[in-house]
Design a protein around this nucleic acid. Structure first.
Length: 966
RNA sequence: GCGGGGGUAGCCAAGCCAGGUCAAAGGCGCAAGGCUUAGGACCUUGUCCCGUAGGGGUUCGUGGGUUCAAAUCCCACCCCCCGCACCA
């Protein structure tokens, strides 16, 4: 029974991982006799376990690394861990606050032991725990990493922190860091920005800028908040909520009336606010104010829909274009009793007529009125009013044109004038702005958030056109896989504006010139690949962080400064210092960086910007590859969904090679791979079979000459070698693996089916090629096979199969193509006839047909082939003698050749005359086996032909005629 | 809304950029046969419809168009996924 049971993956994988590690095969030092290849994977964030999606991206890097290594490159694949940011701290905080849901996820999904869980109240402990946990996952996946260069980020890794400091000093010196102000979602209790991860409510909500339109009221202003300032030309009245509390306040010296909440908010938005008195909205009902365009007097009316917690709590009314305004107005007009208690005469309200000021197709004068009728919206409390508002807003913004009553903006598109209009009015002091959250955001600490404008924040000046230009230049020189992603990068570079690069809280490196700020997580990880090149020295020499000065890094990365002095100050040898410089120069630039596509709009683009800023063009990254992100059984993977698949568990449960194959076979390019249980089963059984098949092949074959079928196998293998190589080079890892596994398998199957006795020499060569082609994908299994095949050393460091042009034989390939088509055709006939044949006869085309065929091919190549060419042939006496049948053959051939793809045409021309007769004769036994019948082969013009149904004349080149006798 | 990607046979998925060998690779599933004590594995065949001679018909989100010829090119539309910022 031995050898037939399922493989012991675990034993095999552990065995080879141990051997690789002992032999230090993946530890890469500079070797000036070898070309280098430096590949990286963005260090993962250590707030939880890695999942199979990380495994996917990392496996792609590993496939490339392993391939290049076998190609003879000195390959460096380092690894590190990201600790910077607020997420670990936030997670730790949730544990401190005993967030049951969160703790449950850690316990169940992450499998964190109880005694460890308690210690997670310390964020650093938590990060370290996950780093250790995940390192095992990465190692067990079999990635070919040089672990000597490992590190993690933040001030808890002081030597790395020094590197971040250096980087920021350089950026500052180059004026790529500026100071400025910026609106953020802010928790007044925590006194810090409330990021996505820190929210109980309101995920995805970002500040929105309202325009405040200032209506003159007595000696002050009523600033009405709006997202549609262009509608100021259609204002009929003002709305205040009679039940809400308003304040009169001095705002930057002007007297404003706004809701009580608004006054507090404005304080956070760089406005100086002094509240003078508080009162109910009711107090202003029926009074009038002046609109800012023509200073017409308009009334202030009660609007219960006005939310004092939104913006200023003051709203102006444009009933022609805003459904809410029209509804509120109509409600008042229809219910005079509502007005009674405010002492507002009904006639005054009834007098108010909507003022149309935007023309838009599909609507008449009063779009708001029309949509209210159409949707049968009852009143201002009807939830359908919200939808109506959205529809009108969209239509009018995109398609709307300002009517004649809009002054100098008349006749222009709403979308065009909006911005200018606001600028114009702001200049006149009639508009202002205020930031507001479109939806409620609640901080983890349960406090409701507001918008704060942060001042003196530090920014990476990505809006700088010079910097953008540099980034684009870098991008244009870089390879992007897949190429479709290039446009996305271009857009991101254009779109990116200044990035707030510092935080007040969380883990990270303090900004060297303003240590109260910490460099934020995306901003400290842009050029750290340079640190990999020297980190093994820093660790080996045990250089203390404080010795890693600006001038040290300047020397290592830029070659400036005096090495003697620097080395002396650092207390290391000048050789050691120079080695670091040399090692940096050896490895840099990064040859490939691969990650999920989610990093395109942030990290990867930052990576481009910062390299462009900090390094000369010869050190700019060479290539970026991206891939989709992992789904599970077609769904997004989420801890909360319960379908989260930790990498470590996958590797432990299914094995590294299977896990790698499942993810690599699942997708390519930007498509999202899907993790499916069925695929797991499928791959596992395929790999088991592959293993056994290779071992079986070992014992097959005999010493013999390499003939047609062997030449065919060798030829087709060259094609596979080429395809796999090119696919890996273009990060088409799925195509590569599919070809290496399935296509090659198919070739073997055909060879074994066709051949009488396999040739030992060919099988020997072919099995070794096959194992090598799969090594980048399933390295453990391939090592095991390599050893079982009696080969010395690691297959991981064996040489990649060379594509040998001289082994390519078009003729042998075409012959097999012909034979398999002939088998197919014969089967097709047998199926239709539904008989068991006694005898099958094949007739190959006569010599004159071949000559004619080749001439037709030639004519097509020279572009002189047409239907009329038939005449040229028919005038030849020896052809004309054969009459109609010849004409039919020539006509058909011309038609076929006319639509033959160029590649095939070339191939057939190069092959020329093909001795079909000999090849078919050689395959007689094969046909016999296939059909369990006697098989005979004739030339169609042979004198002793057996052809009772006169089929022979149907023969064409590459298409022998068939006769079947039952 | 803006930007990016995509819709192919029971499922996954190639082909599309460079139009013709495309009823459309490969894998899975399913069915039949072989091998085997049996199961698994493996091998062969079939898997849109029709067909007693290698053929014909209808297909590649929908509707038009260009072309001798379109899954592939052009136009319009419908649907799905992702990103839109201070967050990893």
């Amino acid at each position: 029974m031995g050898g037939l049971q399922t493989l012991n993956w675990k034993a095999i994988e552990e065995k080879w991982q141990k051997r690789w590690s002992e032999a230090k095969v993946f530890e890469a030092n500079p070797d000036w006799n070898k070309p280098k290849c430096f590949v990286t994977f963005p260090f993962p964030y250590m707030s939880g376990p890695l999942h199979v999606g990380h495994g996917y991206s990392a496996s792609r890097v590993d496939v490339y690394a392993r391939y290049m290594r076998m190609k003879g490159f000195n390959v460096l694949f380092p690894w590190a861990w990201h600790w910077t940011g607020e997420t670990v701290a936030g997670a730790s905080e949730r544990i401190k606050l005993k967030d049951e849901k969160f703790i449950h996820a850690l316990r169940v999904v992450d499998g964190v032991p109880e005694e460890e869980l308690e210690k997670f109240v310390d964020p650093v402990y938590m990060a370290r725990y996950y780093t250790d946990y995940n390192r095992e996952a990465v190692k067990k996946l079999g990635l070919s990493v040089d672990w000597r260069r490992e590190f993690h980020t933040s001030s808890h890794h002081p030597t790395f922190s020094r590197f971040v400091e250096w980087q920021y000093l350089k950026l500052k010196q180059k004026n790529f860091i500026i100071q400025g102000t910026h609106p953020v979602v802010w928790c007044p209790k925590c006194e810090s920005p409330t990021g996505e991860a820190d929210r109980l409510e309101g995920s995805g909500v970002t500040p929105e800028e309202y325009t405040l339109v200032k209506f003159r009221f007595e000696d002050g202003w009523l600033p009405a908040a709006t997202l549609r300032p262009e509608t100021v030309f259609g204002v009929t009245n003002l709305w205040l909520n009679p039940e809400a509390t308003y304040v009169e306040a001095l705002v930057d010296g002007e007297k404003w009336i706004v809701s009580k909440e608004a006054a507090e908010k404005l304080k956070e938005q760089l406005k100086k606010v002094e509240v003078l008195r508080e009162f109910k909205g009711l107090e202003l009902m029926g009074k009038t104010c002046r609109e800012p365009v023509e200073e017409k007097e308009i009334p202030i009316l009660p609007g219960w829909f006005v939310n004092p917690s939104n913006a200023t709590g003051v709203v102006y009314s444009v009933p022609a274009h805003a459904p809410y305004d029209w509804l509120a107005l109509r409600d008042l007009q229809n219910n005079p009793s509502l007005l009674e208690k405010f002492g507002i005469p009904v006639e005054d309200v009834k007098k108010i007529k909507p003022i149309p000021m935007i023309r838009v197709e599909g609507f008449g004068e009063y779009p708001a009125v029309e949509i209210v009728e159409e949707m049968r919206i009852k009143d201002q409390n009807d939830p359908k009013a919200e939808e109506a508002t959205k529809i009108i807003y969209k239509k009018e913004f995109h398609r709307g044109v300002m009517r004649e009553n809009c002054g100098k903006y008349s006749g222009r598109l709403v979308s065009e004038v909006k911005q200018v209009l606001v600028e114009d009015f702001k200049r006149k002091g009639l508009m202002d702005s205020m930031w507001e959250l479109p939806e409620k955001v609640v901080c983890r600490c349960t406090t409701q958030c507001l918008v704060k404008i942060l001042r003196d924040q530090w920014f990476l000046n990505y809006s700088n056109p010079e910097w953008k230009k540099l980034a684009k230049e870098l991008l244009s020189k870089m390879k992007i896989y897949p190429e479709e992603a290039r446009r996305w990068f271009e857009d991101v570079i254009d779109w990116l504006h200044d990035w707030a690069c510092t935080r007040k809280t969380g883990l990270g490196t303090p900004l060297p010139w303003a240590p109260e700020w910490i460099v934020e997580t995306l901003s400290d990880s842009t050029v750290y690949m340079a640190f990999y090149t020297i980190n093994r020295h820093i660790k080996a020499l045990n250089i203390p962080a404080e010795k890693l000065t600006e001038e040290f890094f300047d020397y290592v990365f830029y070659g400036v400064g005096e090495p003697e002095k620097i080395a002396e100050k650092m207390g290391i040898s000048i050789e050691a210092l120079k080695d670091m410089r040399k090692e940096f120069l050896y490895w840099y630039p990064v040859d490939l960086r691969n990650s999920g596509k989610d990093l395109v709009p942030n990290h990867l683009t930052f990576y481009i910007f910062h390299h462009a800023a900090l390094f000369p063009p010869e050190h700019w990254p060479k290539a970026i590859a991206i891939n989709g992100f992992m789904r599970v059984e077609g769904e997004e993977m989420h801890k909360s969904k319960g379908n989260f698949i930790p990498l470590r568990r996958a590797v432990e449960d299914f094995g590294a090679d299977i896990t790698r194959c499942v993810v690599l076979l699942a997708a390519e390019g930007m498509d999202d791979p899907d993790w499916r249980a069925s695929s797991l089963k499928e791959v596992s059984s395929n790999l088991n079979s592959f293993y056994r098949y290779i071992l079986e092949l070992q014992n097959l074959g005999e010493e013999k000459e390499e003939k047609h079928l062997e030449k065919w196998l060798l030829s087709i293998l060259q094609k596979r070698i080429k395809k796999v190589s090119e696919s890996i080079e273009n990060l088409k890892t799925r195509t590569a693996l599919e070809t290496a596994l399935y296509e090659v398998w198919k070739d073997f199957r055909w060879y074994m089916r066709r051949v009488e006795k396999p040739c030992k020499k060919t099988v020997f060569y072919a099995t070794r090629v096959w194992v090598k082609l799969l090594t980048p994908f399933i390295p453990h299994l391939c090592e095991e096979l390599w050893e079982k095949l009696g080969e010395k050393g690691f297959v991981s460091t064996a040489s990649w199969p060379k594509y040998e042009e001289e082994k390519v034989s078009l003729e042998d390939e075409e012959v097999e193509e012909l034979i398999s088509l002939l088998v197919e055709d014969t089967k097709n006939i047998l199926r239709v006839l539904n008989v068991q044949p006694k005898k099958i006869c094949y007739y190959v085309a006569a010599k004159w047909k071949w000559e004619t065929y080749l001439k037709i091919l030639e004519k097509r190549k020279n572009g002189v082939l047409g239907r009329e060419t038939i005449k040229e042939f028919m005038v030849q006496p020896e052809i004309r003698r054969m009459g109609g049948k010849a004409a039919k053959f020539i006509g058909k051939t011309i038609d076929e050749v006319l639509k033959m793809p160029g590649e095939l045409l070339e191939k057939r021309l190069r092959i020329g005359f093909l001795d079909e007769y000999s090849y078919l004769l050689e395959a007689k036994n094969f046909f016999g086996r296939e059909f369990k019948a006697e098989v005979e082969v004739f030339r169609e013009d042979s004198p002793n032909i057996f052809d009772p149904k006169n089929r022979g004349s149907l023969a064409e080149p590459y298409r022998p005629a068939i006769y079947i006798q039952d």
